[in-house]
Lab assay of single mutants.
Amino acid sequence: KKVTINGVEIKFNNPEEAVKFALELAKRLNLRIEFHGDQIKIE
């Protein structure tokens, strides 16, 4: 399963991993996060 985070394609074994990764990243950098299907936007 491929997920695009800020235009960067990252391959994950499952979608939950991708979501956890994105949330952790957003929390660490104190950023806002948006989900659009397989696209995750962090700003």
Rank of each mutant, 00 (worst) to 15 (best):
K1L: 14
K1S: 13
K1A: 13
K2H: 09
K2R: 12
K2Y: 13
V3P: 05
V3L: 08
V3A: 02
V3T: 03
T4V: 14
T4I: 14
T4N: 06
T4W: 14
T4M: 12
T4H: 06
T4Q: 05
I5G: 03
I5A: 03
I5T: 02
I5H: 04
I5K: 02
N6F: 15
N6Q: 05
N6R: 06
N6L: 13
G7Y: 06
G7S: 03
G7T: 04
G7I: 13
G7R: 03
V8K: 08
V8G: 03
V8S: 04
V8E: 04
V8I: 12
V8F: 12
E9C: 15
E9R: 07
E9H: 09
I10G: 00
I10L: 11
I10N: 01
K11H: 14
K11Y: 15
K11I: 14
K11D: 07
K11T: 13
K11E: 12
K11V: 14
F12C: 15
F12N: 01
F12P: 00
N13S: 12
N14I: 07
N14K: 07
N14D: 10
N14C: 14
N14Q: 05
N14V: 07
P15A: 12
P15G: 10
P15F: 14
P15D: 09
P15L: 13
P15N: 08
P15W: 15
E16L: 12
E16S: 10
E16Q: 11
E16H: 09
E16V: 10
E17G: 06
E17D: 12
E17M: 10
E17H: 06
A18V: 09
A18K: 01
A18N: 03
V19Y: 13
V19A: 06
V19C: 15
V19S: 03
V19G: 02
K20M: 08
K20R: 13
K20C: 15
K20L: 09
K20A: 11
F21W: 13
F21Y: 09
F21A: 03
F21D: 00
F21M: 04
A22H: 01
A22R: 00
A22D: 00
A22M: 11
A22V: 12
A22W: 11
A22C: 13
A22Q: 00
L23H: 04
L23M: 10
L23E: 05
L23F: 09
E24S: 09
E24D: 09
E24W: 14
E24V: 07
E24P: 01
L25S: 00
L25Q: 02
L25W: 10
L25Y: 12
A26P: 00
A26Q: 03
A26D: 00
A26S: 06
A26N: 01
A26W: 05
K27R: 13
K27M: 10
K27I: 08
K27Q: 09
R28Q: 06
R28C: 15
R28P: 00
R28K: 07
L29I: 04
L29Q: 03
L29N: 03
L29M: 08
L29E: 02
N30D: 04
N30V: 07
N30Y: 08
L31G: 08
L31R: 01
L31P: 00
L31A: 12
L31Y: 05
L31T: 03
L31V: 10
R32Y: 05
R32E: 02
R32N: 05
R32I: 07
R32P: 03
R32K: 10
I33W: 05
I33V: 12
I33S: 00
I33C: 08
I33K: 00
I33R: 00
E34M: 09
E34P: 01
E34D: 05
E34R: 11
F35I: 11
F35H: 04
H36L: 13
H36K: 10
H36A: 11
H36S: 11
H36C: 14
H36E: 11
H36V: 13
G37V: 08
G37S: 07
G37T: 06
G37P: 09
G37L: 09
G37H: 08
G37Q: 09
D38R: 04
Q39R: 10
Q39F: 14
Q39A: 11
Q39G: 10
Q39S: 12
Q39C: 14
Q39Y: 14
Q39D: 11
I40S: 01
I40M: 04
I40Q: 01
K41S: 09
K41G: 03
K41Y: 14
K41C: 14
I42S: 01
I42M: 06
I42K: 01
I42G: 00
I42Y: 02
E43A: 11
E43Q: 11
E43G: 13
E43N: 11
E43F: 15
E43C: 15
E43I: 15
